[in-house]
Nucleic acid binder design. Structure first.
Lengths: 107, 107
DNA sequence: ATTATATACAACCATTTGGTTTACAGTCAA
DNA sequence: TTGACTGTAAACCAAATGGTTGTATATAAT
């Protein structure tokens, strides 16, 4: 029986360090030591954040020699997309959201 | 000078009670006492959650007599949409996400 | 064989979070 | 005017969160 994961996607992305981790892993897969160089905290702290991200299935780890390489997995973000889509109907002017997005793209 | 709000959107939606609050307020505006009926906790607790949501600008309050009516404001959710859109490029098969969404719609 | 590197694990800590209860102040209704 | 109702504020609490340091183990390099 699979244990209900302690951390869901909403919690996982609530922390700015973890969001930065996802950004960094989106560039390439990396072991913890390399990842840690991007952060002003210990490898242990990073390791814990990666654990939380893997509980939410946003990253997967693979042991390679003494390293443990982490890769990004975006699929669970779909839950967020779903959740957000419900609120599309509540934009005052239905075109507002689209306009906003188009303006962003032009930057 | 505007003080940086303590709670951002990511934190605000991390809590399931607060997500439910947004859902409920999407149906109609409501005062705290009425909102509280939907939750197994005190008005005080709900009041605190609503404070956090208003810090993140996801709800706005208006005093009406002795009541304080809360309304949903979806605009800050755009930050989430933005953040999510960055990860669109990391679906293994670019069509996977679209397929997933279409299947959802058919339910 | 020795040393350095990569990670894991445990213990610990301060702060934040999510809730409670109690008391209070404003507003409405009888 | 008395009483009920609405919301806020303060004090308190247990548990979770985000970090630390120290130690241990496995792997790699010299």
């Amino acid at each position: 029986m699979s244990v209900a994961p302690k951390y869901d996607v909403f919690q996982a992305i609530a922390d700015p360090t973890r969001r930065k981790l996802l950004q960094i892993l989106s560039k390439k897969e990396m072991p913890i030591a390399e990842i840690s160089k991007y952060f002003p905290m210990s490898r242990t702290a990073i390791s814990k954040h990666l654990f939380i991200l893997s509980e939410a299935h946003l990253v997967k780890a693979e042991k390679k020699g003494r390293e443990k390489r982490f890769t990004l997995h975006v699929e669970p973000l779909m839950e967020l997309t779903d959740w957000l889509s419900y609120f599309d109907q509540f934009w005052d002017n239905k075109l507002d959201k689209l306009k906003y997005l188009v303006e962003k793209k032009e930057d």
